[in-house]
């Protein structure tokens, strides 16, 4: 009985890889195109649902326009898809409430995230938008590690944050720019200064 069944199983196994070699085309907001394997896409819940809903065949992928990802640029999307291709087929971690989760950053991810902070924040933003759980975990871990052993002033520089004073000065400047009366008063003051009078008050 088992001998009879064996060839049937072999045929099925041979058929699976052909079916799985499906690629999709995506386009970033700066019109850069990426070809990503179906297995890599499974890492992103958002994209996985999208392609499932679209139900493209291999011909559709080639004939129809690439799927546009409107709010992520090419540089960031390249990193995202590099990560997805490297980690394709891996199980997606489930949040079971056992926080704080212990996250180790693998060597590949550490190299991939060896980028400037602006791009790293864009990568986190993209991982959140595309719902790539493990990429979000490792990138957040990287940001958390950056804070280790730093003073508030150092953190301000690391995270590109303004201090409260700078923040307030910027707010005041913006408010003044919006308030025409304040600008008029300032212009009047400048005019009087130019005329040589310093008796504004």
């Amino acid at each position: 009985m088992s001998v009879e069944n064996a060839p049937v199983v072999d045929v099925d196994e041979a058929a699976i890889p052909v079916e799985k070699k499906m690629y999709y085309r995506f386009e970033s907001n700066d019109k850069k195109e990426f070809r990503v394997s179906e297995l890599a896409i499974q890492q992103s819940e958002t994209l996985n649902r999208l392609v499932e809903a679209m139900g493209y065949t291999s011909e559709d992928v080639e004939n129809k326009p690439a799927i546009a990802i409107e709010n992520i640029d090419g540089k960031t999307l390249k990193l995202v898809f590099q990560w997805c291709e490297h980690h394709k087929g891996e199980a997606i971690p489930v949040d079971d409430g056992s926080v704080p989760k212990i996250v180790e950053i693998p060597e590949f991810d550490a190299k991939l995230m060896d980028i400037d902070n602006g791009l790293l924040f864009k990568l986190i933003w993209a991982a959140d938008y595309l719902n790539i759980v493990q990429l979000l975990n490792v990138s957040c871990k990287k940001v958390a590690n950056m804070a280790q052993g730093k003073t508030p002033a150092q953190l301000r520089r690391v995270y590109l944050l303004p201090s409260d004073e700078e923040d307030e000065a910027a707010k005041r400047a913006a408010q003044e720019a919006q308030d025409p009366r304040a600008r008029e008063v300032e212009e009047e003051f400048e005019e009087r200064k130019r005329q040589g009078g310093n008796s504004f008050f």
Partner: peptide, 15 residues
């Protein structure tokens, strides 16, 4: 949640 408690206390002082 991935920061140590010391980092969280420092971050609290940033702005």
């Amino acid at each position: 949640e991935k920061c140590s408690y010391k980092s969280v206390l420092t971050l609290r002082k940033v702005c």
